[in-house]
């Protein structure tokens, strides 16, 4: 090539969106658009990652994220090996570090990890040579979910800047909400968080972020869902886990559903043509009405398809381990 080409930043790990710049997010979304074209071909296979090994290490339940990474890696011609907690040496009490060390010794180029403990991917990134991708760690971060949400918003609405996004649900425990907060605010969206006060992070209640320089200073908090949905261009519903009721955060799921469930009539408060999103898995009838989840405004299935394209873009963008100085 004679012309200088614009290129992706050389990023070794994907741990959260807090260390992504706006232009880097845009570059990933642009490349994801090119990957989506590959998904629509008759022959869905390109040679970009031939000879590379990707290990998915999922120590917490998952369907779509794990399958999505596997699909993304295979379309790019990488070898994908899946390791889960059950049936692996984790059951025999092997530590996370030793499990990951074994995977490294088997020449894994990329380890995609989901772990119930916040920070587990960061820990591996500090100590191991392969690239680490966080596929969800505890209540902390789920950057690839946030990127696919950003991609879906941009694809459907044409922009993210200036779009109002209402995130409704279990904000306190949601890694999806946390990563989306970073991604959406960096991309210039107006974010509204809505939850019962017991499911909002204390930071957002006690005013710690009232300082203008705080990255989330512009985020609005609502405890009434009708007010949160008013004028929203995107409604992102989060899953309510049954455990929250046991822990005393909610009187009952039925009460949550009555007060905060996304229903057709509540959706009328949102902008005409507002998108309805959900990271899955859904508890239909709790945080979202089936009629809305499968209705005309729902882009929940598009999110799943776009997830493969976004993960392809991320896997493609990682530098080769040789260059990373193994």
């Amino acid at each position: 090539m004679t012309q200088a080409v614009e290129s992706l930043a050389a990023r070794r790990h994907v741990l959260d969106l807090d260390d992504f710049s706006r232009s880097e997010i845009e570059a990933v979304l642009d490349n994801a658009a090119a990957m989506k074209e590959v998904l629509q071909r008759d022959i869905r296979k390109v040679p970009a990652l031939r000879g590379k090994s990707i290990v998915t290490l999922f120590l917490e339940a998952s369907t779509r994220t794990r399958v999505s990474f596997e699909q993304a890696g295979k379309i790019l011609s990488a070898d994908v090996i899946n390791v889960t907690g059950g049936g692996s040496s984790t059951e025999k009490g092997e530590s996370l570090y030793n499990t990951a060390l074994t995977l490294q010794a088997m020449n894994a180029d990329v380890i995609v990890i989901r772990h119930p403990h916040s920070g587990a991917p960061h820990y591996l990134a500090r100590h191991l040579a392969p690239s680490i991708i966080n596929a969800g760690d505890g209540c902390h971060a789920h950057p690839t979910q946030a990127l696919l949400d950003l991609y879906t918003i941009r694809e459907k609405l044409g922009r993210i800047d200036g779009v109002t996004v209402a995130i409704v649900g279990d904000i306190l425990y949601s890694r999806v909400a946390r990563s989306n907060l970073w991604g959406l605010t960096k991309m210039g969206a107006n974010v509204v968080l809505c939850a019962p006060p017991t499911l909002l992070p204390p930071d957002f209640i006690d005013g710690a972020r009232m300082d203008e320089t705080h990255p989330f200073a512009s985020v609005r908090i609502e405890t009434k869902v009708e007010l949160a949905l008013e004028g929203a261009d995107v409604v992102l519903a989060l899953r309510i886990q049954k455990e929250r009721q046991k822990a005393g955060h909610l009187p009952s799921l039925r009460e949550y559903s009555r007060m905060y469930g996304i229903t057709s009539s509540r959706l009328e408060e949102a902008s005409p043509g507002a998108l309805v999103m959900h990271p899955g898995p859904m508890n239909e009838g709790v945080e979202i009405d089936p009629e809305v989840a499968h209705g005309a405004r729902s882009v929940i299935e598009d999110q799943v398809t776009n997830g493969v394209a976004v993960r392809m873009a991320l896997l493609y963008g990682l530098p080769s381990p040789a260059r990373a100085g193994r």
Partner: peptide, 18 residues
Amino acid sequence: GLYRDDLASGAKPLMRPS
């Protein structure tokens, strides 16, 4: 971009849909 033989070295270029 996805078919280049030099993907192992250098930064990955930005792509456009074919």
